[in-house]
Structures are given as structure tokens and as C-alpha cells.
């Protein structure tokens, strides 16, 4: 099943990936990362199609798309 993996040490919690995801499967984490941001996470594992739009908009190369 396709999925994204967010590198929490790179993610700055800008939420651009949340708006880029047409299927709304990304949400923000409720706990701080080591860098002090609320990182993005794949909230709905089953709905990710691996389209990679979130990785396209990510300014910090924090999202890996696995398919």
C-alpha cells in the first residue's frame, strides 16, 4: 500500500502538504519534534495513493513517497 514517510527532523510544520493532499490524509502531529515544530504525519494510511503532491509542495524535502 502506498505511503508517505515524514522526516521529523526536517519538517517545519508549515502545513502546505495538508492543503496539497486532495484526499486529506495528512494531519499535523500533536507532539513536538526535536526541532520544536509540530510535524506532519500520515493520519489516514489507507487513503494515500502515493500521488506525491505533498512531496512536490514540501519546501524542506521532508516527505518520502513509497509506492
Amino acid at each position: 500500500m502506498p505511503e508517505i514517510r515524514v522526516d521529523e527532523t526536517r519538517c517545519k510544520g508549515c502545513e502546505l502538504c495538508v492543503t496539497a493532499c486532495n484526499l486529506k490524509c495528512i494531519a499535523m502531529s500533536e507532539t513536538f519534534s526535536v526541532t520544536g515544530y509540530y510535524p506532519a504525519k500520515l493520519a489516514k494510511l489507507e487513503c494515500c495513493t502515493g500521488c506525491g503532491l505533498c512531496a512536490q509542495i514540501c519546501p524542506d524535502l521532508a516527505i518520502e513517497v513509497w509506492k
Partner: peptide
């Protein structure tokens, strides 16, 4: 290496 731009800055996207 992680970029030091502000969260949501377009520079990171264009660099990539």
C-alpha cells in the same frame, strides 16, 4: 542537510 529557511518558504521548493 536541513535548510534554514522559514517554515513554508518557497526557496526550498525552487532549490529542490
Amino acid at each position: 542537510k536541513p535548510m534554514r529557511y522559514c517554515p513554508g518558504c518557497g526557496h526550498g521548493i525552487v532549490h529542490r
